[in-house]
Structures are given as structure tokens and as C-alpha cells.
């Protein structure tokens, strides 16, 4: 006789198996159901997380490629900057702007004992520099 009202009707006793040990009690069935449900939930959560991680990974990868592309773009911009800052280009721009190379340099001795500042030009000679008279003996030109 089939007991349809019982959840255990699907178990071995339903199929005419009369072995006492094969019969399942309701609480055992509930447990099994709970187990199946639990596993399903865990699997679902796992799948959800995995898919989220995959999506995130995809986004990260996309961002990484974007970063690589930007870094390459930046590298090319730096190369262009290097070209524009090269001596040849700077010379061209300076010449166009009316600059010229340094022709001569004048030095300004700062010596409070000598009064107002004076310039020394390149007429200074080594022999004069050797002189013990030092600065005073050197021919200096007032500017």
C-alpha cells in the first residue's frame, strides 16, 4: 500500500522494499532537503561571486589595457617633448627670438674694502694675477 500522504512515499518502502533499515523517517527527509537546499544556496552564492569576480577581473583587465595604452601615449608625448627640448630645436627657437651666443663675460668682484663694485674684463693677464698687489694692481675698467 502506498502512503501518498507521507514524504517518505518516494523512499524504498514505497517501492515495496520492506527492509526496516531502508525506511526513512520524516525528519531525515527534512534534513536531506535542507542539505540540498543549503548546497544549492552555496552553489548559487559561489556562482554569483565567481561571476562578479569575473566581471571585476574583466574590468580590471580593461583598465590595465587602458593604462598601458595611456602609458604608451605618454611615452610618445614625452618623446615629442624631448624633441622639442633638444638643443637643435632650442637653438632654432632662440635664434628666431633674437638671442645670440655669449660673446664675453664680465666678472664683478665683491669686496667691501674696494668701495663701489667694479667689473674686470678679460684684459686680466696671468702675469698680473701672479702679482702680490692682487686686485689693486690689476688694470680694471670702470663700467
Amino acid at each position: 500500500m502506498i502512503q501518498r500522504s507521507s514524504l517518505t512515499s518516494l523512499w524504498p518502502s514505497q517501492r515495496g522494499i520492506t527492509n526496516r533499515s531502508a525506511r526513512t523517517k520524516p525528519h531525515q527527509a527534512m534534513l536531506a532537503m535542507a542539505l540540498v537546499f543549503g548546497i544549492t544556496v552555496v552553489v548559487c552564492l559561489y556562482l554569483l561571486q565567481t561571476s562578479k569576480i569575473n566581471v571585476r577581473n574583466y574590468h580590471i583587465q580593461e583598465k590595465q589595457w587602458e593604462l598601458v595604452a595611456l602609458q604608451r601615449q605618454n611615452t610618445n608625448t614625452l618623446a615629442e617633448l624631448a624633441y622639442q627640448q633638444s638643443i637643435t630645436q632650442m637653438d632654432k627657437r632662440a635664434e628666431a627670438a633674437g638671442f645670440r651666443p655669449i660673446q664675453s663675460v664680465l666678472y664683478l668682484p665683491i669686496n667691501p674694502e674696494q668701495g663701489p663694485a667694479r667689473f674686470v674684463d678679460e684684459s686680466l693677464t696671468f702675469a698680473a694675477a701672479e702679482s702680490s698687489q692682487a686686485v689693486e694692481s690689476v688694470s680694471m675698467r670702470e663700467q
Binding site: 698680473a128 694675477a129 692682487a134
Partner: peptide
């Protein structure tokens, strides 16, 4: 600067 200036300084 020239020696005379540098050494003087």
C-alpha cells in the same frame, strides 16, 4: 671667476 678674483674672494 679669474684666479685673482676667486683667490681674492
Amino acid at each position: 671667476p679669474p684666479d685673482i678674483i676667486r683667490l681674492g674672494m
